[in-house]
């Protein structure tokens, strides 16, 4: 475990070694606020809650999480430092977990910086703070799922741009999975189980259950399992690349 934390520390510090972190945080805040105020009519709704803010998170993360996660392995492969890392006497999962954790905590930091919004709605009215807290945690968990996917894709290539695109495409499938449009396209030819399985993969569906404050446990289990699975797959990818 302490090995994973060492990796975490190095990686997390890496985010701040360049102005990239500040740029990213600024973009994140600007887009999150922009989507909330302009696209979801935060003020016109006359409702003191943050659902307009959380509504856009799956779409926001679809692009921003791959941007955080794309470098995790691809950069190491490009620069050759992966040879140093992979020849240390440590287990691959410790590296995988430490790297993902760094990205996840960084995403958590970005999310935490939106706290003024939370304060604002409390000044404007009296929102259900329990639901807002659950939404924040759910949002962070969903970010973790996007990041685990991004990390896994990043391990496949030394090209960060490819890693980004791959992660966005896969993330897009998970975001779209719950839409009637997609399900209607699948339903005519696929057995019911498959349709249900696809619907059950929906990021938006699970996230909405959390932000609505209902049925949180299955959604949490979903995101956690997906994270664990993607990280497990990340380890397998690293293993497979050795034999390539």
């Amino acid at each position: 475990m302490s090995t994973a934390l060492l990796v975490f520390r190095r990686e997390f510090a890496g985010y701040f070694a360049t102005p990239l972190a500040a740029v990213f945080l600024a973009v994140f805040l600007a887009v999150a606020a922009g989507m909330t105020f302009f696209m979801a009519n935060f003020f016109d709704r006359g409702q003191a809650d943050l659902s307009a803010f959380f509504l856009w998170h799956p779409w926001l993360y679809l692009v921003l999480m791959p941007a955080i996660g794309m470098r995790l392995w691809a950069e190491e492969r490009r620069s050759g430092t992966i040879e140093l890392l992979m020849t240390l006497p440590v287990q691959p999962w410790q590296l995988v977990f430490g790297k993902w954790l760094a990205a996840w905590v960084f995403a958590g930091l970005a999310l935490a910086l939106t706290a003024p919004l939370w304060i604002t709605v409390n000044v404007l009215g009296s929102p259900d703070n329990g639901v807002i807290l659950a939404s924040y945690l759910g949002s962070w968990l969903m970010a973790g799922a996007f990041l685990a996917i991004s990390a896994c894709v990043s391990a496949l290539t030394k090209n960060q741009v490819l890693a980004f695109i791959g992660a966005v495409v896969i993330g897009f499938l998970f975001v779209m999975a719950g839409f009637d449009l997609v399900l209607a396209a699948v339903r005519p030819w696929a057995p019911d189980v498959v349709v249900q399985a696809i619907a059950a993969m929906s990021f938006i569906g699970h996230f909405q259950r959390i932000t609505d404050g209902v049925l949180e446990a299955p959604a949490i289990i979903f995101f956690v399992s997906l994270i664990v699975f993607a990280l497990w797959l990340n380890v397998q990818v690293l293993d497979a690349r050795k034999a390539a």
Binding site: G14, G80, T81, E83, T87
Partner: peptide
């Protein structure tokens, strides 16, 4: 038991 210097001596530029 091994010390390994990879080709090109890769290093983390930001450290």
């Amino acid at each position: 038991r091994l010390g390994y210097l990879p080709e090109g001596a890769p290093a983390y530029p930001d450290m």
